[in-house]
Design a protein around this nucleic acid. Structure first.
Lengths: 328, 328
DNA sequence: TTGAAAGCGCTAACAG
DNA sequence: CTGTTAGCGCTTTCAA
């Protein structure tokens, strides 16, 4: 590497300890020597070696973030919020991505810990006790967004169940007689949905069953497009599709448009997430804003509470927002 | 931290040197002691401290990436490609984001270097000699995507100028008599466009001027929407808008749709980038695919060439793809 | 085949 | 106010 404290010490005719003191403002030090040291350091463009500092202190001022697939709008917004919030506290963020691969996910977490990040924010595909144990073994503050791992690890999110339930109420109020829930599998491999989508489904089922006159159905396969067409052409009831993600809704709208079925008129449709692609699509999709930026910000707050040794709730809910659209 | 080589050495009754040899396969070592060491290490769940290793070797197996604003689809695709390509070579990626802030940009680069990333891939907002000098001072392999900094620092991208020129040819061929180039400023602060958009503009101008019968105009302000409306309502020529980014095109299409003007019929429009939001928008926007994933992959390839001490071209072009749409 | 010793660059306890 | 010393955890001569 380049310039070290040793070089500076030599040039200034002092010890490395003194040089260190000049930087850290710790211990008493003569103003003149300090100024001189700082000046020399600047002239030489001295930069402390963070690996050495980190090694010594066991602290790196880094947070680790692991998410799957940034291409998902949801995550992009999340990452930005985390970055901003962390920066505000003078921390840095190491973002790592993977593609819904559970093994990779563990690797990346492990790797970040090996590099001594001080805390982790995760939006994992893995969950369950086994994964929870793995995380606890890291012995680092961890906050989870999006997929509840287990009861113990702090989680931040919205009340997905209640949001889905609200959505169903809205749909019913609009006079739909049949509601179809679209919820294809997310983690492809094991055909297992992440927590939030499971919750959405639960919320849907719980609420829709309260309305005796309303028919319902849940489609959980990947070829939902053809199923949707089948339903729409075969049934006479006023039908709405409630999708566990905006993407599915957009996909359906596009497909049906080609068949000359118009959202909001020939059928109702509602999404979930409020991804910003919606800004460019007409008609405006009705959806639930999962306030991902707020959630991310809150997650960082909680992580810092943990870092400061504070107690935190193991579940923190942020208020979602229902967005009215033109598709219901 | 947890278990160290010292612990393992003690347990196995050998020196730390020997433990190290067991891991690195360097130097001769008794098969039995080796096996024993590895076994103990596994039992204790030993993890090498990467800060210590990095400090010692001056190598971290990390690449640094700095981009502004992942919310931009463009970058999201890029990051994924980089991550995958780096992983394939057993390297890790530290992604850092900022919001078009030049000072922050430098900070983050500096910080990554302080952490001894071995190389950098940047898509910077800054450019020019001054920034080039700054980068060279890092004394790290660097590859630039998207904003040419200066002649010396290796750059990967598409031939933006030629792509824009091609686009104009296409538009002219479709019979448009007036072409309006939409290119609002990207780096808000200084009203200065990044290289790629400048190139697109140059390509536009160069080509459009070859077609004497075609009128043209360039709108470079943020309130392009009202300008567009003004032009469309006031002129009788068959008009097409060529946007330096898909986002602007989508914005215009949405706005004009509300005024009952239909893309592809009442006016032509073409974008640039081929962001994947286009998949959900009807009509399909004509655009240029900037093949960002290919570019990113290539950038990593080049970075590794640099890491291996190979000579690389200071400018590498990847073939773009013109996408036909329904909007011309 | 193994170990002792020195050092990467920074920090902190303890003396002076 | 300043310096000496030891050590973070790992690696690498060099010698045994």
């Amino acid at each position: 590497m380049g310039v070290t404290t040793k070089d500076i010490a030599q040039i200034c005719g002092v010890s490395r300890t003194t040089v260190n003191r000049a930087f850290t403002n710790t211990g008493r030090i003569n103003k003149e020597t300090k100024d001189k040291i700082l000046k020399v350091a600047e002239d030489l463009e001295y930069r402390p070696d963070m690996l050495a500092t980190g090694l010594k202190n066991g602290k790196t001022q880094y947070l680790g973030v692991v998410v799957f697939d940034v291409r998902n709008r949801y995550f992009a917004q999340m990452l930005n919020a985390i970055e901003i919030e962390a920066k505000a506290r003078n921390y840095f963020v190491n973002i790592t991505l993977h593609e819904k691969d559970k093994e990779q996910e563990r690797d990346m977490i492990q790797r970040l810990v090996d590099y001594r990040v001080e805390g982790l924010i995760l939006s994992p595909v893995s969950k369950g006790n086994d994964f929870g144990t793995f995380l606890r073994k890291m012995e680092k503050p961890i906050v989870i967004i999006g997929n509840r791992v287990d009861k113990e690890i702090p989680f931040v999110g919205i009340d997905e169940k209640k949001a889905a339930s609200d959505a169903v109420q809205t749909i019913v109020r609009k006079g739909y007689q049949k509601i179809v829930f679209i919820c294809p599998p997310l983690a492809d491999v094991e055909n297992e949905n992440v927590y939030s989508h499971e919750q959405r489904e639960e919320g849907f089922l719980q609420e829709v069953q309260k309305h005796k006159t309303v028919q319902y159905e849940a489609i959980k396969s990947w070829n939902y497009l053809s199923e949707v067409v089948k339903i729409l052409t075969s049934s006479s009831e006023k039908t709405a599709f409630f999708c566990s993600g905006d993407i599915f809704a957009l996909d359906i709208m596009k497909h049906l448009k080609q068949l000359n079925k118009r959202a909001g008129q020939d059928y109702g449709i509602m999404g979930f997430d409020n991804i910003d692609t919606l800004d460019y699509v007409i008609p405006r999709l009705a959806t639930i804003d999962n306030v991902v930026e707020k959630v991310a910000t809150k997650a960082v707050d909680i992580l810092f509470d943990l870092l400061e040794g504070k107690e935190v709730a193991n579940k923190t809910l942020v208020d979602y927002v229902e967005i009215e659209g033109e598709t219901l």
